[in-house]
Design a protein around this nucleic acid. Structure first.
Lengths: 232, 232
DNA sequence: CGGCTCATTGATAACTCTCAACGCAGGTGG
DNA sequence: CCACCTGCGTTGAGAGTTATCAATGAGCCG
């Protein structure tokens, strides 16, 4: 029995394109790896040597300027794919925001396996197209939205994306209460703002009764309608 | 003899994954279409009904907020692929910035063809991965760069991307003089700025001798080193 | 030669950043 | 068990960059 048989994301990750025998072959070239919060799996600018599936936890994809400004360019959740297959260098670092578990493959092994399994490539293509759509929507936020719209949009997105994890229901509904996998600085790096501006927006949303902040890392959405309106 | 045999981009577009016979089959489900500058091929939010390859010209991918703010989320050049295969709706409009020619397919026809030709899907996957990398790099610009850095980065990128078209040499070098396929408003929509800010940056770069502007739509890079430095 | 669109330039306002101080919570060591 | 230290977050004051509003200028086409 391979590790894949009990994998938490086997029905959602790209592996779901494979049959039992193929899963076994893929399992043979992959290995599990645990990351503690803050630990990096891939560094910006290095050759692409590995790819992975996220099993558990949340990770950020980030890039920065020479003088130290940082921008988080993506956030990945369980069942998402990490890395740059088929040559090239990785243009962004990958770092765990929470403790995480991933299923890692050497890029060359994965490339060869994928070329022989069009179904897997197809799943990966669909996932990449979806991620490209999501990234482009985020560009509208970065380029055209105000600080208040950015923060509200961010909370809405989190509420969507975290619900399969934190919500006891079927995952189709949105989470109303969740734990932020981000520090204030990381939120600022997602939204293209400073930490102070993020903090002020949080305080304002709380004072207006739209959200509650039981602790630094917890958010309760009290007025989803108002939050949607703020998101623009 | 099919239209593909004389296609200007047959060696660079995703079609290059196919052999002679397959090209014939693909040709049978596609058709050529001409667009005049400003004409749209796809509208934001509609069901994805068609996909296309760019043969000639430059097109923008754009999205906007309800209150009319616009953000250009991508720019496509000859040999690039347009549209959202494999279900879903199109999240951004596609509009010609110059007169253009494209090779159009109904999405369902293309989907079916692609599923039967893994080589084509592989090319499309590579292209999509590259586009995702490019888009993420652009997020750093939108989120963290100043107006002067944005404009300088924009000119550098254009110099790269336009060279295969306007440059008489091998295409590996960068264009020093080129015609902008964008109005000032469109440049603002790419960079997340206003038209006035873009104009002021252009004027400044010209007054500092870094670029010259022989006409509204022409740019000459006079000091590439300084421009790179400005790009941050 | 108007009349149009698009771009430039100027003055002012608004938003967000920067710099600085303070507060809170968790962990450590006495 | 408490005091202190440290990291993170909040709050405030002021500066700076970019947006907004308004007027002028340049090129193009009828």
């Amino acid at each position: 029995m391979s590790a894949c048989d009990t994998c938490l994301v086997r029905n959602r990750a790209i592996c779901s394109a494979l049959d039992k025998e193929e899963i076994g072959a893929l399992n043979a070239i992959g290995r599990r790896r645990s990351l503690v919060s803050g630990e990096s799996l891939i560094w910006e600018g290095e050759d692409s040597v590995l790819v992975a599936n996220v099993i558990e936890g949340v990770l950020k994809l980030s890039t920065g300027t020479e003088d130290g400004r940082e921008q988080i360019v993506g956030v990945v959740y369980p069942s998402d794919f990490i890395g740059r297959p088929f040559g090239g260098t990785t243009n962004h670092g990958v770092t765990a925001l929470t403790d995480a578990r991933v299923c890692v493959f050497s890029r060359s092994d994965f490339d060869a396996f994928a070329r022989e399994h069009p179904g897997l490539e197809h799943k990966l293509l669909q996932r990449t197209l979806t991620e490209l759509d999501r990234t482009r929507r985020w560009m509208l936020l970065l380029g055209r939205k105000s600080a208040s719209e950015k923060v509200a949009s961010f909370l809405m997105e989190l509420s969507d994306r975290l619900s399969p994890i934190t919500c006891e229901s079927d995952g189709s509904s949105n989470a109303t209460r969740f734990v932020l996998p981000f520090s204030r600085q990381q939120i600022a790096d997602v939204l293209g703002l400073t930490i102070e501006t993020v903090s002020r927006q949080f305080t304002r949303l709380k004072s207006e009764g739209i959200i509650d902040l039981p602790s630094r890392r917890e958010v309760v959405i009290q007025d989803r309608f108002a939050l949607v309106a703020e998101a623009g």
